[in-house]
Design a protein around this nucleic acid. Structure first.
Lengths: 126, 126
DNA sequence: GTCGTTGCAAAGCGTTTGCAGCCTA
DNA sequence: TAGGCTGCAAACGCTTTGCAACGAC
């Protein structure tokens, strides 16, 4: 029997929060959001739910230098991120950069890349 | 009295390792390398030496998603990094990408950016 | 009734801090 | 000698794990 996965209100809650999130969320944020719906929810459960969703491939880790790992649905296609230095929120960016290959020395093979921009978001810029 | 900084063999050792490093080093790597010269060196000392060098501005943090922070001399100018997925080593890249500003929505201001490429280095590609 | 899931608490792990003794300057 | 620096160990913050009770199927 291949790995089963049961439907529980805890997992549903974590799933739902990520489902409707418009930006990547950290475990702490997930925990806080999901706790509003589930009484007595434990952090460990959130970690386990996240691991499950990761290995299912339904979410992906968004790792930003110097920041806790965040997670977002993996059905968003290739994109990068922007972090506001004022409010710390992380935004999805569409589009990508080119000519990355020209940066590396000969014989190096590039298989993937990460681009993170930092600055001030529209809200904080006002 | 402004903050003094004394010359000790521990700090010298950490300084020297970073001085001659051709790629960014993690605290663990620094500790290992410096320990070869200093008997009984403590990790805490390495952390403190790194903090001191950071606030002096002599080194900078190189943060690669999902990796421990590494450090390198800050006199290298603007550049990005490449991490080999086989050997985990991090290489400096020269050059930079353009049109980053076009990725962000209107009203967003970009102040800095990080680009990390992943793939296989020349040595591991063979 | 099974056995995957949960909450709690303990254990890990990497980093930081408190402290008494050490050693630069 | 003064006070910054060091090593050790305890403290931290975040993540993982062990375990008995719980509950999905």
């Amino acid at each position: 029997m291949i790995q089963n996965s049961r439907k529980t209100k805890q997992r549903d809650a974590v799933h739902a929060v990520l489902e409707h999130a418009d930006h990547p969320l950290s475990v702490a944020e997930l925990f806080e959001a999901a706790s509003k719906h589930i009484d007595g929810l434990g952090v460990a459960t959130v970690y386990r739910a996240v691991s499950a969703l990761l290995s299912e491939g339904w979410i992906e880790a968004v790792e930003i230098p110097g920041e806790p790992v965040r997670y977002e649905r993996s059905d968003k296609g290739h994109h990068h991120h922007f972090q506001c230095e004022k409010c710390d929120r992380v935004f999805d960016l569409s589009g990508c950069v080119e000519n990355l290959r020209t940066l590396v020395p000969p014989k190096f093979r590039v298989s993937s890349h990460a681009v993170t921009l930092f600055g001030t978001c529209a809200t904080c810029a006002r």
